[in-house]
Write a protein that binds this DNA or RNA. Structure first.
Lengths: 222, 222
DNA sequence: GAGCTCTTTTAAGCCAATTTTAAGTCTCGG
DNA sequence: CCGAGACTTAAAATTGGCTTAAAAGAGCTC
């Protein structure tokens, strides 16, 4: 899952980036509103975190511009302000959630998961058929059998399952899971798809990941 | 286990901090309501102790704010007041327990253990398979064989067992057991995991602590 | 407070798992 | 049947955990 953080204080930005990468997110950081908007418009993110008070272009203005472009990406505000007025303003500008500084990292993480899961549905774990993925504990179960995955394998499977019934193109996968933006002729994806298929097959959960030739992959639930 | 004490009298605060650290807790202290709330919001604690009468923001207000943020961390009040009215007030504000000053340190400790155990289950001792951990006496038994641990070894094992069947990430371990909050590239955890494994192995209880590479550790009960 | 022991932390080298690269083989669609 | 793209495999590169030894710190005794 790929996140954008728009935050001018390097300390906070670094802390968030490190913590979120530990949770297998691919994280980009922008240090002012203009460059943040730039990133948001030229890339596809699964969620954007914006500080209210940032230079060049205010957080709220960035949010408005993103919405104006038609994007429905979940947006969360970080802010020191906490009057009712601000909340209303933020939500009117198109934000999905709102977290007051100072905040616990755990709380932010929980709220991020809420936003991401709403795209999916139901409880906190991700499902596809009998496969159960728990992003909180980094565990995967097929029925009650646990499948042990490496970090990259997990991140790839998570991305495919979050987008189940949708085709995931190679370029999106390389962006969202590997955070690689330029064109490159690597075949990492193929290799990891093989790894995943082998482990899933071995657990009795074969044929989950289907190939769309020339495009990418899809996990179908039906 | 990591505690926060919000108490303005340095004498009492120091006494509590020292006493609780002697019991292997990782203890933070805040000297007024505002800074206390700050700490509570920006960190993850296993229990919070709040004095009723503190400057800037009253204890009860701090408690309300914490609950308002959705946190369910156990909260205990310290207070000189003891009318029924106050008790009701405190509990309504979201406190879990209530202890009147002056109090015996032993009693406070006992009540803290009650609050912490409710997260786990049943009786006072922690279990994982045939391993038995007694937080009160700092003893560890494998069947009837005692395993002698140093304070840090004990604290680490206790944290892992309290969170058994859940993955404990490195960053959570370093926060809850060592009380280190900033990013640091220490390898203390590795060293202590080695110490623990060696002692457990030696007692015949090998293979208890499993590594989740790139993430942390887990003790599985099953 | 000097000297001793035990605990905790730091640092370095080693080893194993993970990730990436690269090359050869296979398969689908035209 | 050809070629592009996908799959598989092996091996290189990298990362990160494990182990060890030694230094630093804490507590105790005399």
């Amino acid at each position: 899952m790929r996140l954008l953080i728009i935050e001018d204080e390097p300390g906070i930005a670094g802390f968030l980036k490190d913590g979120l990468e530990e949770e297998y997110f691919a994280v980009d950081v922008a240090y002012d509103g203009k460059s943040g908007l730039d990133h948001a418009m030229t890339n596809e993110y699964d969620l954007i975190i914006i500080d209210w008070m940032i230079p060049v272009l205010s957080g709220i203005e960035v949010c408005r511009q993103i919405r104006k472009s038609g994007s429905v990406v979940p947006i969360m505000f970080l802010t020191a302000k906490d009057t009712l007025e601000d909340v209303v303003f933020g939500l009117e500008a198109g934000a999905n959630d709102y977290i007051k500084k100072p905040f616990a990292f755990e709380e932010l993480l929980a709220r991020i998961r809420v936003q991401l899961r709403s795209k999916n549905q139901g409880d906190d774990s991700l499902r596809a058929g009998n496969l159960n993925i728990n992003p909180g504990t980094h565990q995967v179960f097929y029925d009650s059998l646990e499948i042990t995955l490496t970090p990259k394998e997990f991140a790839l499977l998570e991305y495919l399952v979050r987008n189940k019934d949708k085709v995931c193109t190679r370029s999106r996968i390389i962006e969202h899971v590997w955070d690689i933006h330029f064109d490159s002729d690597t075949s990492v994806i193929d290799v990891y798809i093989t790894f995943l298929r082998r482990k899933l097959e071995h657990a009795g959960c074969g044929n989950l990941i289907q190939t769309i030739r020339g495009v990418g992959y899809i996990i179908r639930e039906s």
